[in-house]
Amino acid sequence: MPDAAPLLAATQLLDYRAPSVVRLTEDRKWLRLPQYDRIGAIYDFVRNEIAFGYNRADNIPASEVLRDGYGQCNTKGTLLMALLRGVGIKCRLRGFTIHKELQRGVVPDLIFPIAPQEILHSWVEVEFDGKWINLEGFILDEKFLSVLQQTFFGNKSLCGFGAGTDCLDAPPVRWEGHDTYIQETGIEQDFGVFETPDQFYSEHMQKFGRVRGWLYRFIIRHWMNTRVRAIRSGRLKPSRSAIHDHGGIADAA
């Protein structure tokens, strides 16, 4: 058996000793819960109390994600890992890329053609009951996912608006002791397992280029976050007519 200590360690990104993270853990009394409920409570917090949205970069510490109050697959994953390790739950990261079609409808139409074809992605693997369980279903908060389910009611598959699933009506996103997914069908490359997000981002980073990187950080992501908030609140309805035959999304209304 490999040493479990690295899978519980704090790092620069998994900064679960930061005051804000410690305070949250103590306020929620997660350490008092049995392991199953401890994982579930933290998972639900990250899924629904940290809204789906886009931070300034992938490689930011958990405490910054918590302060932002929103995140996407990579940043919410960092926060999830930090909170899990902070209460003694072993976890690690699995790195991937997803096809950019999964972000269509969230990325503004004007920008979509210049977006990278593959986007850096990850999920969290948590050890429970003697096995490793994949956790990816925390990415979209329940309110945002509910709007997609209502808008595309009757469509089993969806690839767009941050979702990549073949069971939109009932995707496996709840913690019930087994794998959870919401972007699985968009996966392109599999980079394997990493002990920490620090290691993952030291080897793999989204390649925007200097100009596109600046545009993303200071303009595009704010535009994307505005669209996400509008969809969540019902002020911007995704267009049903934009669904391709294969279940993808062409545009937003």
Rank of each mutant, 00 (worst) to 15 (best):
N74K: 08
G247L: 03
D129Q: 07
G177L: 15
G247D: 10
K131A: 08
V173Q: 07
D169R: 10
T25Y: 00
G164M: 03
R47C: 09
N155E: 09
T226Q: 05
F152R: 03
T97I: 04
G69Y: 09
F128D: 10
Q72C: 05
R67C: 14
I182L: 12
T185N: 14
D190K: 06
P113G: 06
V21D: 13
R174E: 08
G247F: 14
I89Q: 05
I60R: 01
I119E: 11
I89A: 02
R104K: 07
R174T: 14
Q117L: 01
W214E: 15
F52G: 13
R174G: 03
Q35P: 08
T78K: 11
F200G: 00
L135A: 00
I133N: 06
V65M: 10
Q117W: 07
Q149T: 01
S122G: 10
N74I: 02
N59E: 14
P172L: 01
A57T: 01
K237L: 15
V228K: 13
V173H: 07
A163T: 06
R28L: 02
G105C: 05
V46E: 11
Q199T: 13
V193E: 14
G164A: 05
D245Q: 10
P238I: 11
N155M: 11
F52N: 09
L93S: 03
A250M: 14
Q189L: 13
M205R: 12
I133Y: 09
D109Q: 09
W123N: 11
K76L: 04
E142W: 04
R174Q: 12
I220N: 02
A253D: 14
D245P: 03
D68E: 11
L13K: 06
E125D: 13
D141S: 08
R174N: 13
H246L: 03
L13H: 09
T151S: 06
P116C: 08
K76A: 04
F138L: 00
Q183D: 15
Q149G: 02
N225T: 07
I243M: 15
S233H: 09
Y70I: 07
R32A: 10
Y216T: 00
S122L: 13
S63C: 13
W132F: 06
R92D: 06
E101W: 05
A5D: 10
E125Q: 06
G160Y: 04
T165P: 09
G234V: 09
P171L: 05
V107S: 03
F96M: 09
A51L: 13
S122T: 06
E195L: 03
V173W: 00
L79F: 02
K76Y: 02
L7H: 12
T151K: 04
Y181N: 03
G192P: 11
I98V: 12
T185I: 12
G40F: 04
R23A: 15
F112L: 10
E49D: 13
P171V: 01
H178S: 08
I98M: 12
A242I: 05
H178F: 07
D37W: 00
E188I: 10
Y216K: 07
A252S: 11
G105P: 01
A5N: 15
A82W: 00
E136S: 07
T75R: 13
